[in-house]
Design a protein around this nucleic acid. Sequence first.
DNA 1: TTTATATATTGCAATATTACGATAAAAGAA
DNA 2: TTCTTTTATCGTAATATTGCAATATATAAA
Lengths: 110, 110
Amino acid sequence: MGATKSDQFTKEQNDLASLAKALGHPARIAIIEYLLKVDSCICGDIVGVLPLAQPTVSQHLKELKNAGLIKGNIEGTAICYCIDEEGFEKIKSFFDHVTVSLSKKKFDCC
Amino acid sequence: MGATKSDQFTKEQNDLASLAKALGHPARIAIIEYLLKVDSCICGDIVGVLPLAQPTVSQHLKELKNAGLIKGNIEGTAICYCIDEEGFEKIKSFFDHVTVSLSKKKFDCC
DNA sequence: TTTATATATTGCAATATTACGATAAAAGAA
DNA sequence: TTCTTTTATCGTAATATTGCAATATATAAA
């Protein structure tokens, strides 16, 4: 055994887990932070910013894109990446739900 | 190679990634949702709720606890787990930062 | 066309995660 | 003490992730 039993959980649980998992690596957090900082779509200079080789960065970008957290646009010979707000909306609504639930909490046992 | 180059990133980036990573599995999302739903600390009946064996659930609980997302209290022969609000505050402040940054965004290229 | 630049893909080694049976540990009940 | 219940840990197999060199692809420039 050893494979994740994703089929045993709901689509919502799997989708949320995928989004969280995509953010579960410091390089990918760094990419998101950089994209937020430059306040515009940037291209492959992410490679220059990260302490990782180009294929590795490309792989991380692909994962963020697959998860729906960033978008990419072909711009001549370069590619312009930027935040995909939709993906962040989904995660954010989960944390909003958590916050609301916690505010309704009656006991504080632990 | 193949090991994560965590030492090349900041503590903040690694901490955030750890929190996100801990939520990056449907079983752990399910555990959090269950703890929110029961509106109180519950014990090992999480095992009865999840489609996983007891050692696997125990392992997932340990990861959530290490990440600072849940707390556990020994309660006789059972253990009482509940949400650790502090961990969720940390993640939430990251997403708040994302939201603020996105609202200041000028271009919409992608 | 050839050359240069930017990014993606392939293939593989190193490492990490997931899952669970077997077993241990801890505490209350008999 | 022994038995039962609850949870954790160990050991291990299956699988997934991480990282990069080599290579492929695609477009622009010369």
